[in-house]
């Protein structure tokens, strides 16, 4: 495992921890899109179907368990926790799951590396992860004031994507036959979705003003 891959995993982990910390300590999920969180839970469920049959390393298995567990925990908090759920911004979080899930599933059926069930679900999870942040970005745009933790959550997620691209470039040059078009293209699309956010995030940080996305 190279440094980019490991740093990418760690920023991914940080994003989840920041979010859980916010929800757990402040007992608030203001500014967090339930739709995005539910899509992530679905992404991990579809991708880690092989968690018991395909052992890669202890690190991999533990990280998979963390991502699965935390994504369902976050969804549970927003939907079920009696205090947290009151802060959920239902009026602005109106993105329809199906608009993202259905096209991704059809695309996975059409474009995949191997048409086995697990392989199609894995491909579906890649496509869905690429666009799962959209409801969150839409919600951020509609929310006037983005609090620091929500901003950091999206920042860490974007950093994770950028580091994974560095990891693929590194692996391409250091490992023989390392070519994964589906992973790369969906990963690139996903990272580009953050570009706009990053621009405003750095600007607000540079000028030391509160993060606000233009409508």
């Amino acid at each position: 495992m190279n440094i980019f891959r490991f740093s990418g995993d760690m920023t991914h982990l940080m994003s989840v921890l920041v979010l859980l910390l916010k929800i757990h300590t402040i007992k608030s999920c203001a500014g967090i899109s339930l739709k995005t969180q539910e899509l992530y839970a679905l992404v991990f469920l579809a991708r880690y179907l092989d968690i018991v049959t395909n052992f890669i390393s202890l690190y991999n298995t533990i990280m998979k368990l963390i991502f699965l567990g935390s994504s369902f925990m976050i969804v549970w908090y927003i939907r079920r926790h009696r205090i947290v759920r009151r802060s959920y911004d239902k009026e602005h979080d109106t993105f329809r799951h199906l608009f993202l899930v259905l096209p991704c599933f059809i695309l996975a059926l059409l474009i995949n590396e191997r048409s086995a069930f697990k392989e199609i679900m894995w491909t579906f999870s890649l496509y869905l992860e690429a666009v799962a942040i959209l409801p969150q970005l839409v919600l951020l745009q509609r929310t006037k004031n983005i609090d620091n933790l929500t901003g950091q959550y999206v920042f860490f997620l974007g950093a994770y994507r950028a580091l994974y691209i560095c990891n693929w470039i590194y692996r391409y040059f250091t490992e023989p036959h390392y070519v994964h078009w589906i992973t790369w293209i969906s990963g690139l699309v996903q990272t580009l979705l953050y570009a706009d956010f990053f621009y405003y995030y750095f600007n607000s940080w540079k000028n030391n003003v509160k993060l606000q996305l233009p409508a």
């Binding site: 891959r5 991708r47 890669i56 991999n60 590396e113 191997r114 992973t183």
Partner: peptide, 10 residues
């Protein structure tokens, strides 16, 4: 190439 489909990333 079977190894190609070994998804070792998260």
């Amino acid at each position: 190439d079977e190894g190609k489909l070994d998804h070792d990333e998260l």
